[in-house]
């Protein structure tokens, strides 16, 4: 399938002095999950809001499912759904009432709306909470009812804006399962997240956004490969041995050892993973004890650090109120 679900060229949005989105070019294929990754305030939400026709771009063009987001906004709206931190349900109403409301707005008759709402509540394990106000829902239930509200009419494309921010691990796994189910049923999903693990787990392709610009794009594997093939992490039994171990490993692997904040850990980027076994053996031969080691692909955290020169998690700028 070479169809594009979303295509943008030079998309720009300016709030006052600040260029929140500063020339974003995206080609998002139909089917699967496309991840937009970036720290708070990077311009992810603003980009989504433009694609969902909630905000008019100040420059550039965007087509969603073949329709221009400005000139054919109504066409776009009838085929997409928006869920996320900023597109929510009425928390004073019950789950049932919210879904009835949305079903009626989508054009269902009274009876059909009732049937549809009941079906969705059951599918999302919310049957028991149907008559509770949404404000009494837990974080995970809240996210499920939000997503249920977005598939009242099956959308061809769904925008999921930071769907797991603030969720506990179990609820997060449930949301991931739902996302996979939606993709399995043929819906394209554009997902924004600030969690690298989430993009890694779900997204087929990822765009990394920072300061309103796309700074990297590709599959998770491609992004990682752009940093190096992998990293070895070693933890020594006695922190006093660390500098000696670091020196030996650095020599054997021809790489710069990085002393981690954990006083017993050292990591090195390796270009040839097969050399690692020999290097560890050599450390043992010197009578130094290694308690743990791991060899893996670089995490997206490292990718982010390599791309932006700062770690993803530490950039807690405030999201632009949009």
């Amino acid at each position: 399938m070479t169809d594009l679900a979303i295509e943008t060229a030079g998309l720009v949005k300016v709030f006052g002095e600040m260029r929140a989105v500063d020339g974003v070019d995206l080609q998002i294929p139909a089917g699967g999950v496309y991840g937009v990754l970036g720290p708070n305030g990077a311009g992810k939400t603003t980009t989504i809001r433009m694609l969902a026709t909630l905000l008019e771009p100040d420059g550039g063009t965007a087509t969603v499912l073949g329709h221009d987001v400005v000139r054919e906004a109504a066409e776009v709206r009838s085929r997409v759904a928006l869920t996320g931190q900023f597109a929510s349900l009425d928390e004073d109403l019950t789950g049932m009432e919210n879904l009835l409301l949305l079903s009626r707005l989508y054009g269902y008759s009274r009876a059909a709306a009732k049937a549809r709402a009941t079906e969705l509540l059951a599918a999302f394990d919310l049957g028991d909470a149907a008559n509770k106000q949404v404000k009494a829902y837990s974080g995970g239930m809240r996210r499920r009812i939000d997503i249920a509200g977005s598939i009242v009419v099956r959308p061809d494309l769904m925008f999921l804006d930071e769907p797991t921010t603030g969720l506990d691990p179990r609820s997060r796994n449930q949301v991931w399962e739902i996302v996979r189910a939606l993709v399995g049923a043929g819906t394209t999903i554009l997902l924004t997240t600030q969690y690298l693990e989430e993009a890694d787990q779900l997204a087929d392709r990822i765009a990394v956004i920072d300061h309103g610009k796309v700074i990297a794009e590709g599959t998770s594997g491609q992004l990682k490969a752009s940093v190096g093939s992998g990293a070895v992490k070693v933890r020594v039994a006695d922190p006093a041995d660390r500098s000696e171990v670091a020196r030996l490993l650095g020599e054997s692997l021809g790489a710069e050892p990085v002393l981690e904040s954990d006083p017993a850990s050292v990591s090195l980027r390796v270009s040839d993973p097969t050399a690692v076994a020999g290097a560890l053996q050599r450390v043992g031969d010197h009578g130094l004890v290694i308690s743990e080691y791991s060899l893996g692909q670089p995490s997206l955290d490292e990718v982010f650090l390599a791309l932006t020169g700062r770690p993803a998690e530490e950039t807690q700028e405030k999201e632009v109120p949009a």
Binding site: V152, R154, I178, A181, A185
Partner: peptide, 27 residues
Amino acid sequence: PGAGMDQRIIAALGSGERPPRASAVNS
């Protein structure tokens, strides 16, 4: 919770035919 949820969600999605657009008065 969540056991078999993906199957049920796919089922719920599949039955989603598109109703006629709500009239201005109705909405």
